[in-house]
Each structure stands twice: as structure tokens, then as C-alpha cells.
Computed example of a mutant assay.
Amino acid sequence: MLQQLLKLSRSSPTLQNQHLRQIGLDQLILRMLALLICGGLIQRASLQSTKRQSRKAQVMDELSSWIRHNLHHSMQLSDLRRQSGYSERSLRNLFQERFQCGPVQWIRQQRMELARDKLLQADASITITIVAQSVGYQHLSQFSRDFYQTFGQRPSDLLREARRSEIELQA
């Protein structure tokens, strides 16, 4: 930049004024001075921001792992708050940023995916009630509604299909 400014200083006064206005020399000088004087502060602030971001990512990794390992329990937003140390509002923002949905929706998605896997791998002794309870649902009707809303298929239909496929594979 300094080399360009030196070249500019050798040009005609009319061109100089026109170019100086275009590049905003006064703003450029102020920015350069700020960087020279406060460069260390800016770098430290940037480093602290990066550390905060990596800390948030670490907390979210730990929290999502904790959630997946505890899907069989009833979970409230207050449980997530206690587990993570973040406020409910911060949790909502973090989940939105990372998963493009709120924490309650994300937990429901995780439960539904786990339930779907369990239904697809179910043996003859597994019932929909057992699967629903194993993913934290206390009411079969709510589980069925959520499952249908998520996959567009009733859990009983998926279980029936999985068992039919298993029989065909054994035959």
C-alpha cells in the first residue's frame, strides 16, 4: 500500500486528489496507525474470540454426547442448562447455530432416529412400547404421533416391514 501511495505522490496534483479521495487516505492512515499501536490487542482479542468459539464447540460436543447417552430419560431444557452451564437462551442460540433447530427439536430428532434404528433391527420380542420407552417416551400415543410426523410412517408399519424383510432374508 505504501508503494502505491509513493507512486501516487509522484503523479499530477489533480490525479493525486482524485485518487486520494477514492482510496480514503485519511481512513487508511488511521487504520494503519491503529494496527501499529494496537496490533497486539487486536491479536489477543482475536485469539480470545477463537478460544471462546472452540470452548462453545467443546461444550456442544459434550452436551450432544450426553444427550445421546441419556435419550431414555426425560429431558427438560433446565437439565441441559445444568449440564452445560449455559443459560436457556444461549443454549437455544447454540443449537440453532449448530443444528439449525432448537434443543427440544434436536432431542426429538435424536430420539426418532434411535427409535427408527431399533425398530429396523428389532427381533420378535421387541414391541413398539418397549422402543418408545427406550427412547424416553412415557406415552405411546405421543411417540406414534412424533414418529409419524418425522418419518411419514407409523412405527407399527416400519416394524412390520423390518420383520417381513428379516423373514425373507432367512428364507
Results as ranks from 00 to 15, higher is better:
residue 154 R to H: 15
residue 128 I to M: 05
residue 27 Q to F: 03
residue 46 S to D: 09
residue 67 I to T: 00
residue 57 A to H: 06
residue 125 S to P: 08
residue 144 S to C: 11
residue 159 L to D: 01
residue 94 L to Q: 04
residue 93 N to Q: 09
residue 2 L to W: 15
residue 58 Q to G: 07
residue 38 C to M: 14
residue 100 Q to V: 03
residue 8 L to H: 04
residue 64 S to T: 13
residue 161 E to T: 08
residue 120 L to Q: 14
residue 58 Q to V: 07
residue 83 Q to D: 04
residue 134 S to H: 03
residue 158 L to S: 11
residue 44 R to T: 01
residue 116 R to S: 01
residue 71 L to W: 00
residue 32 M to T: 02
residue 156 S to D: 13
residue 100 Q to L: 07
residue 144 S to R: 14
residue 161 E to W: 09
residue 128 I to R: 01
residue 169 L to V: 03
residue 21 R to S: 11
residue 30 L to E: 14
residue 129 T to E: 14
residue 151 F to D: 10
residue 52 R to Q: 12
residue 35 L to A: 05
residue 102 G to T: 00
residue 27 Q to D: 12
residue 89 R to C: 01
residue 40 G to Y: 01
residue 77 L to H: 05
residue 67 I to P: 00
residue 15 L to H: 15
residue 108 R to F: 03
residue 94 L to F: 05
residue 110 Q to D: 03
residue 35 L to I: 12
residue 15 L to M: 12
residue 141 S to Q: 03
residue 136 G to W: 03
residue 164 R to G: 03
residue 88 E to L: 14
residue 163 R to A: 06
residue 90 S to K: 09
residue 126 I to S: 00
residue 15 L to D: 15
residue 44 R to Y: 09
residue 10 R to K: 14
residue 50 T to E: 14
residue 90 S to W: 03
residue 91 L to D: 05
residue 77 L to P: 01
residue 18 Q to W: 05
residue 32 M to N: 02
residue 19 H to E: 12
residue 167 I to E: 11
residue 156 S to R: 02
residue 114 L to G: 02
residue 42 I to H: 15
residue 42 I to R: 15
residue 110 Q to E: 05
residue 75 M to D: 02
residue 74 S to E: 14
residue 6 L to V: 11
residue 130 I to R: 13
residue 3 Q to V: 12
residue 36 L to Y: 13
residue 43 Q to W: 07
residue 32 M to I: 04
residue 40 G to L: 02
residue 140 L to F: 04
residue 40 G to M: 01
residue 169 L to T: 08
residue 107 I to K: 07
residue 160 R to M: 10
residue 152 G to L: 00
residue 32 M to S: 03
residue 1 M to F: 09
residue 104 V to K: 07
residue 113 E to L: 13
residue 43 Q to M: 07
residue 74 S to D: 13
residue 73 H to R: 12
residue 39 G to E: 04
residue 5 L to W: 09
residue 140 L to S: 09
residue 110 Q to P: 01
residue 139 H to G: 02
residue 145 R to L: 08
residue 110 Q to F: 01
residue 22 Q to R: 14
residue 44 R to W: 08
residue 108 R to D: 06
residue 106 W to K: 04
residue 79 D to C: 02
residue 7 K to N: 09
residue 150 T to I: 05
residue 67 I to Y: 04
residue 50 T to M: 11
residue 122 A to F: 01
residue 7 K to I: 07
residue 54 S to E: 14
residue 44 R to P: 05
